[in-house]
């Protein structure tokens, strides 16, 4: 039990550090910055209390916002993603049985299943992030384009992280 908490704290610190120190300083093609920190929320154990997931999402988003001085931006997008997560999990994998402390992963959900789960959450997060940031419907096409390209980068990084650092691939 304690083990899983420590593991998640370490993961939180590691992902936030990668985001702040490396990814936030990078601008692929001049303007694309991938977001890997949301993986912390994505792969929290299935049975985590839904309310706790919301609070953790709030804390994660706020941490990123403090370091980039973007008040509320990442917080609102991440909280929204955490809000969708339980419905998505039961919608996609309602028939599966999840053990205590089991995390979403390729082994449990299958390659296609996990990929679908990650893609939906990443796109929901990125789309709400860019929409809230721009708040200009004249630029709707730009928002879609940035969402699509950034999601591609984020999902690739998420998979690299999963293959390198998690055991239940």
């Amino acid at each position: 039990m304690n083990n899983i908490i420590i593991k998640n704290i370490v993961r939180f610190l590691f992902l936030v550090a990668i985001q702040i120190f490396i990814l936030n300083q990078m601008h692929f093609f001049g303007y694309l910055t991938p977001f890997i920190y949301i993986l912390f929320i994505i792969i929290l154990p299935f049975q985590t209390n839904k309310l706790l997931v919301l609070l953790l999402a709030f804390a994660t988003g706020l941490t990123i916002d403090i370091f980039g001085d973007t008040p509320g931006l990442h917080t609102s997008a991440t909280v929204f993603m955490a809000f969708v997560r339980p419905a998505l999990l039961s919608g996609l994998f309602g028939k599966l049985d999840f053990g205590q402390n089991e995390e979403p992963g390729i082994k449990k959900l299958g390659f296609g299943g996990f990929l679908r789960y990650v893609i939906v959450l990443v796109i929901i997060h990125h789309f709400s992030l860019f929409l809230l940031e721009t708040l200009d419907f004249n630029r709707f096409f730009d928002i879609l384009k940035t969402t699509f390209l950034t999601s591609l980068l984020s999902i690739s990084l998420i998979y690299i992280y999963i293959f390198l650092f998690t055991r239940n691939k």
Binding site: L54, I66, T70, P71, L73, F83
Partner: peptide, 28 residues
């Protein structure tokens, strides 16, 4: 809880839509 957290976040976010409001609120 989702609504409460989202309202807090969005009210912070609303300061970033104008130059004068960002003078009043920031996280530095």
């Amino acid at each position: 809880l989702f609504l409460v957290l989202e309202v807090i976040a969005l009210s912070m976010l609303s300061t970033s839509y104008s130059y004068h409001r960002s003078l009043r609120f920031n996280l530095v």
